[in-house]
Simulated scan of single mutants.
Amino acid sequence: MSHVFEYALLRAVPRQERGEFLNVGVLLYCSPLDYLRCKTHVDEARLRALDPGIDLELLGDSLRLWCGACDGSTAAQVRETTLGQRFRWLTAPRSTLLQTSPTHTGRTEQPDEDLDRLWRTLVLPPA
């Protein structure tokens, strides 16, 4: 049986004033399966092409916190909310180094497989 899921891309935006970004992860939320996970990949060379001074340590810390909010491994208060509330909080518009795309939907029977497919297709550099 397939279930509706929502996903959003995680974007590194080194300099908001330029409007340039690089996809560095994907969030996938499926309410009927109580599933919220993220998968990331940071291509340092591509990011440094956008901004040689990017703070990659800050980006890495932010990604760890966001993924921890998804799987509940963070100590932050956000883990006391429902998965749906977490997904909405994570995908809310913001003007920071880490932003999300608009949300999109799909259908899934295996959310881990769809998360991996989206990550390979939309986040990893072209082979």
Rank of each mutant, 00 (worst) to 15 (best):
L28R: 06
G53W: 07
D34L: 06
T82P: 09
E44H: 14
L83W: 03
R117D: 08
W66G: 00
G84I: 15
L10E: 00
L56V: 07
C38N: 10
L10C: 00
P52R: 13
S2P: 06
L56H: 03
D116P: 05
L59Y: 08
T40R: 06
C38W: 11
G25I: 09
L33W: 05
W119P: 03
G68M: 09
T100N: 05
L63A: 03
E20A: 11
E109R: 11
P93K: 07
D116N: 10
V123R: 01
L10P: 00
H104K: 14
W119L: 02
C30I: 00
T81A: 08
A8F: 02
L22P: 00
W89I: 13
V24E: 14
P32N: 01
T96H: 12
P111G: 09
S101M: 05
R11L: 12
L56R: 06
P52L: 05
F87D: 10
A49M: 12
R117N: 12
E109I: 10
L115E: 06
S101V: 03
Y35W: 13
T105N: 12
R11S: 03
K39N: 08
Q110A: 12
A75K: 07
W119F: 12
T103D: 07
R15L: 14
P125V: 10
R18K: 14
E109S: 14
G25Y: 09
Q77K: 08
E57F: 00
L10M: 01
S2G: 00
T100K: 10
R117A: 14
G19F: 09
L122Y: 06
D43K: 13
M1F: 14
G72A: 07
R88V: 15
S2C: 02
T40D: 07
L58M: 08
R37D: 12
L33T: 01
A69S: 11
V26E: 04
V78Q: 10
V78F: 04
E17C: 02
G19L: 08
G60P: 01
L22E: 04
A49I: 08
R88L: 15
E109V: 11
D34M: 02
L115M: 05
R94H: 14
T103F: 07
